[in-house]
Design a protein around this nucleic acid. Sequence first.
DNA 1: CAGGATCCCGTCCGATACTG
DNA 2: CAGTATCGGACGGGATCCTG
Lengths: 134, 134
Amino acid sequence: MATKTAAQRREQARIDYDAFLRNCPTNQLLGRLSDKWVSLVVSALYAGPQRYSDIGRRIAGVSPKMLTQTLRTLERDGIVSRTVTPSVPVRVDYELTPLGQSLAGLLTAVKEWAETHFEEVRTAREQYDGENPA
Amino acid sequence: MATKTAAQRREQARIDYDAFLRNCPTNQLLGRLSDKWVSLVVSALYAGPQRYSDIGRRIAGVSPKMLTQTLRTLERDGIVSRTVTPSVPVRVDYELTPLGQSLAGLLTAVKEWAETHFEEVRTAREQYDGENPA
DNA sequence: CAGGATCCCGTCCGATACTG
DNA sequence: CAGTATCGGACGGGATCCTG
């Protein structure tokens, strides 16, 4: 049979739609920006250009792996730029691009919100947990 | 032996420090806010109070599970409030709390940044991929 | 309508060890 | 100093089915 059933057509539509969603560009990008390490790295660089290890020292608890990984994707996305100075030992500096600058203010604001409103969130949690016994 | 070796002391310090980091409150909170679904839900509610299924319809590709899970944690954190109207069928409305309102502007700004600057990021990626062969 | 429960697979990421 | 490589456990989150 060359014709498809309604169920088959619906299934195909669902597959197409899912593929579209996975490729949905802006959602993908938002997913990238919605990353704890991205926020922290970009906020750190907001203070000015810095070396790899300086960034690592500024951000508590980041592993070399995540730091490199985050910096690489940010470089690929045109948000940070990477400059290698071939001395001994090697020196690598990172800084925000103009595009990155435009983002940094926003992410830093979110980070600062987390810092300033943490107490309110904490008390909200306690109240919620009190009202909703385990 | 009651005394500890230097290595043991260092190890203990590392464990304590790790525990501190895991509990580091603001970083934890930032991790929560740095969530794709949180951004989308809060941005959606920024337009005003809405029903569960309305939010689901506004956000492309969200599963009931993630929607509920996200709304629950946001409610627990005092960012959204949940109102049940016991009719038939049941009706549940969500809206931002004042605390949530103060956050929503920031997250919406990030979401809009992703939408407006997507093209720049895309071309940056293409250039990067061209310069850095696989 | 607004979810809860369960299964389960992919990926994230921390720990560890090695290199130019 | 600034990474790279690999392993393995944890967990996010989609699919599916069920309920008040």
